[in-house]
Design a protein around this nucleic acid. Sequence first.
RNA 1: GGCGCGGUAGCUCAGCUGGUUAGAGCGCAGGAUUCAUAAUCCUGAGGUCGGCGGUUCGGGUCCGCCUCGCGCUACCA
Length: 706
Amino acid sequence: MDQPKRYLITSALPYANGELHLGHLAGAYLPADIYVRYLRLLGKDVVWVCGSDEHGAAITMRAKKEGISPKEIIDKYHELNKATFKKLGISFDYYHRTSAQLHHETSQDFFLRLHEKGDEFEVRTTKQYYDADFDQFLADRYIKGTCPRCGHEEAYGDQCENCGSDLSPIELIDPVSTLSGKKPELRETQHWYFKLDEHEAWLREWIATGKLDGEQHHNPDNWKKHVIGQCLSWLDNGLQPRSITRDLDWGISVPLEGAEGKVLYVWFDAPIGYISSTKQWALENGTDWEQYWRDEDTALIHFIGKDNIVFHCIIFPALLRAYGGYVLPQNVPANQFLNFEGQKFSKSKGWGIEQHAYLDEFADFPNKEDALRYALLRNLPENRDSDFKWDEYVDYHDKELADKLGNFLNRVIVLTNKYFDGQVPEVQPGVSDAIQGAIELTDKLTAEIEAFSFKQAGLYLIELASYGNTYLQDVSPWKIWKTEPDSPLIKECIYVSLQIATLISALCEPFIPFTSPRVRKQLNLPPLENGDLTEVLRKLKAGESLLPANHRVGEPEVLFPKIHDRKDTSRLEIINRQKEKLEAILAAERGPEREPMKPEIQFDDFVKLDLRTGTITAAEKVPKADKLLKLSVDLASEQRTVVSGIAEHYKAEEIVGKQVVLVANLAPRKLRGILSQGMILMAENADGKLVFVSPEDGFGNGWTVR
RNA sequence: GGCGCGGUAGCUCAGCUGGUUAGAGCGCAGGAUUCAUAAUCCUGAGGUCGGCGGUUCGGGUCCGCCUCGCGCUACCA
């Protein structure tokens, strides 16, 4: 499909059971956002849907453990995730939720249709464990017992983590429900299975060759290798009927008589959420949802993480085809995983940063949205796992956004104001072919976006700014200005540079949408609207002005205040706080490795110590000593001079006024010729880092510590 | 265990169906420049392309084995 009439874009529905971290953003949302914004700028008919995935056993389990209702959980995370996406400029056309009535109806219709076709489902009766106290069947994971292979007493119903055996709950010796802690009973239950195996032949051809019913549906060369590889691996292993119902009281009821207490399996209803979301969007926008799902000229594209490949490339397509009349995805550009400072994101360890936490902690950081989007873009896990590092975040921001892109735009605006009073100079038609290089870069950039290669596309954006910088440097109008201020070379140079700047203002929008309007403002242009890029590209190639002669530009403004800034360290401090948090986690992991405890002492030994609160009233570096500070400490009844070995950790001026605890009856001792009358209590960790042990602010001086 | 994807300069990564001296950015070294956010531009150093074996006139690029990383392996979602 070279030129589809319309695009239907989906991003994986986030599970409404927790916060989303940067890995999620880099996997399925940022790439889709770039793609969709690009299509909109070209004036394409595109709708991008997403929403919260709100069913499944994990939510009910969590609700039971926390003693709240599932609805409280899903409401909380639906609102949080939806709002956070919006703040980051993730521009879904609709963010729906699977708890919506419309979605329940859509899913039930889907199920019924397949049921009525008669040959898509089969019903199987099996025995499963049932927890009578909690009145429900138990998922394998929620049953523990003794492993029949190795005797490990804490094996799960699906696997023994001690010997690695795959188990079924029935095999466990002495099974126990992790909900009630009691022995569950075996009960018969009945479930509906989707006969996925009967779809194997056409799926294989479709995945391997891109052909559907003998016609070319898509070009498999455009699909990522790891996507096709994993699908074929699955197909080679043989497909099996797949259970699509569960015994659960949370979810979408199976719409059949005799199916009380059964719900659709969350994996069945979640992708149908894409359809529901489209329906709701169409409803609110007075348009028809069906053309997006049923018209063959629609290009359906699923953005997901690699954990979702099989579902979106095999199971969901099979369901859609079984239903009949639905389009199948043109591409599923699944990303791999993003790591965080060398390790996987881990909620339990606190490793990584969540999207909303980022926004909170970077509240005072200018461009925090685009800075993050750009850092993730530069490190998208498009073909392999990648790693997010704060140092790289800083480098990408300062060296690429600020130094290359921001600085180029700034130079151009400044030069225009300086030499031409802010007006675009007039030039002879067709004088410069310097624009040709910009056209080539533009073509490369758009081709990369269309090939779902967003990282490379982003590099071309910066290269375009570099191209502009090189061009400025080659012509060096400031040199010509000194001897020949009226030279047409200056006019041409500024004119061409302004064209490149205008081009950048348009091309950058999909990547850094918060910055684009600010660039436009400096050029005295309105923010972009849907379709504007088409006209920009047409003019560019026709040799017409993107920014015509005599147009008056705006005032220069620093787009990206650098993080490494001599005069203002506030941005660097925000980054450093993040790095310190990670160090603390690593330090905590080193955990139990603490100094062994000293031999026991008696209370009498302890009371010999005279500990007093005090305040540092003066501090100065001890000459010829690297580590020593000479402190004056106010104990109310007297002033003490204390020499303390903390100069490598604290500067003299920053600890004046600090409240401390002093060992007041320690025998005086001369250090570097100064009599030290006491010792300040400090805590020290394995890295040798020191911190004061202090009373709370405002506590008076000279009081005892016991 | 089986399968899939990946292992390319100090770091992060490009290299389609095999073909001349293996690329980019950052970092590093040297130079140019001052319009600009101590920014920019140019040049250079640096790699036995995870290891071994094979097919070929020729292999990061194909085949086999080994090794390391990540993922999937169908009822956790």
